[in-house]
Computed example of a mutant assay.
Amino acid sequence: METQEPKFGFTRFAETWNGRLAMLGFAIGLATEFITGQGILSQLGLM
């Protein structure tokens, strides 16, 4: 009997891409703060 990997939920493929995109977003956030000299809250007008 074959075991099928679930199509939804916490699959290895989904978690790998989630981690990669999270790291990309974090790097873009740091670069934006470095370039503008303002934090994210200042950029959004909350501070």
Rank of each mutant, 00 (worst) to 15 (best):
M1S: 06
E2N: 05
E2Q: 05
T3I: 14
T3D: 13
T3V: 11
T3C: 08
Q4D: 07
Q4G: 01
Q4F: 13
P6S: 06
P6M: 02
P6Q: 04
P6I: 04
P6N: 01
P6F: 02
P6E: 05
P6D: 04
K7Y: 06
K7N: 00
F8I: 00
F8S: 00
F8C: 01
G9A: 03
G9H: 10
G9Q: 04
F10G: 01
T11P: 01
T11R: 10
R12G: 02
R12K: 13
R12T: 08
R12E: 12
F13L: 07
A14L: 07
A14I: 07
A14H: 11
A14Y: 14
A14C: 00
E15G: 00
E15C: 02
T16P: 03
W17E: 09
W17T: 04
W17S: 04
W17V: 08
W17C: 05
N18W: 14
G19A: 10
G19P: 00
G19M: 12
G19I: 05
R20S: 02
R20Y: 05
R20G: 05
R20V: 10
R20H: 09
L21P: 00
A22W: 04
A22M: 02
A22F: 07
M23K: 14
M23R: 15
M23Q: 13
M23T: 11
M23L: 15
M23A: 14
L24C: 01
L24E: 01
L24H: 09
G25Y: 03
F26N: 03
A27Q: 08
A27E: 03
A27K: 09
A27V: 06
A27M: 12
A27C: 09
A27N: 06
I28L: 12
I28M: 10
I28T: 06
I28V: 11
I28H: 00
G29D: 03
L30V: 15
L30E: 12
L30S: 13
L30Y: 10
L30M: 14
L30F: 15
A31D: 01
A31R: 05
A31M: 14
T32E: 06
T32F: 13
E33D: 13
E33F: 06
E33M: 15
E33T: 13
F34D: 02
F34E: 02
F34L: 12
F34W: 08
I35W: 12
I35Q: 06
T36F: 12
T36C: 07
T36G: 10
T36D: 05
T36L: 05
G37W: 11
G37S: 07
Q38G: 00
G39M: 04
G39P: 03
I40Q: 05
L41A: 14
L41C: 09
L41I: 05
Q43M: 09
Q43T: 05
L44A: 15
L44I: 14
L44R: 06
L44G: 04
L44Y: 15
L44C: 09
L44H: 06
L44M: 15
G45I: 10
G45M: 12
G45T: 07
G45K: 09
L46T: 05
L46K: 12
L46H: 07
L46P: 01
M47P: 08
M47G: 15
M47L: 14
M47V: 15
